[in-house]
């Protein structure tokens, strides 16, 4: 077991998959000679060379389409889009080509491509570099969306995504690349579907994913210590498909749900989880589910305004205390 950073876990997964299969390549802006903006491809250029570790022009739709086209004939590309904000430019190829080609070819063709991209709000990057776009990707039929909350998941999800024959979008987070965590030394593949109970509790369920799993865990500790409330925390590492059975199982046990997301509320993970709860286990509820979400504004630059936009553990605690009638 090694205690390594999130970026190191991603780098290790690249390294192993590229060593395992000569048709695995990686491509993106500054990923080769420069080693990647977040170091996720550090050292790979020297090890595997420029044909397999490809510095692309700043042409997101173009190089994403190139990766998708290469995947049609057996190449397994891992495409890094430097910021999820730029993925909008590649949306045509992701949405219209990768996600739909299996269906519209009647199963003849598939696009086994991995697209990794960090989203989330970092530090004062402004409206065009702070977006959360998971809600957009998770609505696309034919595209899998996973999002790692730990180095272990970051490693195992990428490994499985490379081997999976579907296009997989991996939503990472700019603030998490230096987070440390234990990753087993032995190779493993993390499931691309499902959810994980990361803290067991009886009083309510906090649903989180990516960075909001950590806010939820911090909130659960505070709730336990200060309010005597035992929260269960469920990590929704797969955003598409969402784990209907896992969501229902936890809510059927705790009878209360709070969905914690860094994204804006409309048409988001929270609204989808609430819909699933309605459809699967409405009569198990003791209280109306609640969302803790970002303010629905273009991300402001000013530090104080930025902080006010994004929720955190305190907001989760407040929402739970109110829900439990202990405010």
């Amino acid at each position: 077991m090694a205690n390594i950073m999130y970026w190191e876990a991603i780098q290790r997964a690249h390294d192993e998959e590229m060593t395992n299969d000569p048709l695995v390549i990686c491509m993106g802006e500054d990923i080769g000679v420069a080693g990647g903006t977040y170091k996720a491809t550090k050292g790979l250029f020297d090890k595997f060379g420029p044909e397999r570790v490809i510095d692309t022009p700043i042409s997101e739709n173009g190089y994403t389409g190139v990766g998708i086209g290469a995947s049609f004939i057996g190449i397994r590309p891992i495409i890094e889009i430097m910021s999820v904000n730029f993925a909008w430019l590649a949306m045509d190829q992701i949405f219209n080509s990768a996600a739909k080609v299996r269906y519209m070819s009647g199963g003849q063709l598939e696009a086994p491509v991995v697209i990794r991209s960090p989203g989330g709000t970092a530090h004062q990057l402004g409206a065009q570099h702070s977006a959360r776009m998971e809600n957009v990707f998770m609505g696309i039929a034919g595209l899998r969306v996973v999002t790692p909350s730990t180095p272990k998941q970051a490693y195992g999800l990428l490994k499985a995504a490379v081997r999976c024959n579907d296009p997989v979008f991996i939503y990472e987070h700019e603030l998490m690349y230096n987070m440390k965590g234990d990753v087993p030394d032995a190779e493993f593949f993390h499931p691309l579907e499902g959810s994980e109970v990361v803290r067991s509790g009886k009083d309510l369920t906090l649903f989180g994913y990516n960075i909001s799993v950590h806010w939820s865990l911090q909130a659960a500790d505070i709730l336990s210590k200060n309010h005597g409330i035992e929260a269960e925390v469920v990590d929704l590492f797969s955003l598409s498909p969402l784990d209907r059975a896992g969501i229902a199982a936890s809510v059927s046990k705790t009878h209360r749900a709070v969905i914690v997301e860094e994204s804006e509320a409309p048409v988001g993970v929270g609204s989808e989880v609430m819909a699933i709860i309605n459809e699967e286990c409405f009569f198990d509820l003791d209280a109306a589910p609640v969302r803790v979400s970002s303010a629905n504004v273009p991300q402001p630059y000013n530090h104080t305004l930025e902080k006010a936009t994004i929720p955190g553990p305190d907001d989760v605690v407040n929402a739970v205390v109110k829900m439990m009638g202990k405010a």
Partner: peptide, 8 residues
């Protein structure tokens, strides 16, 4: 771009 990808 898909054609360029096939070529790659």
């Amino acid at each position: 771009p898909l054609a360029a990808g096939l070529a790659k």
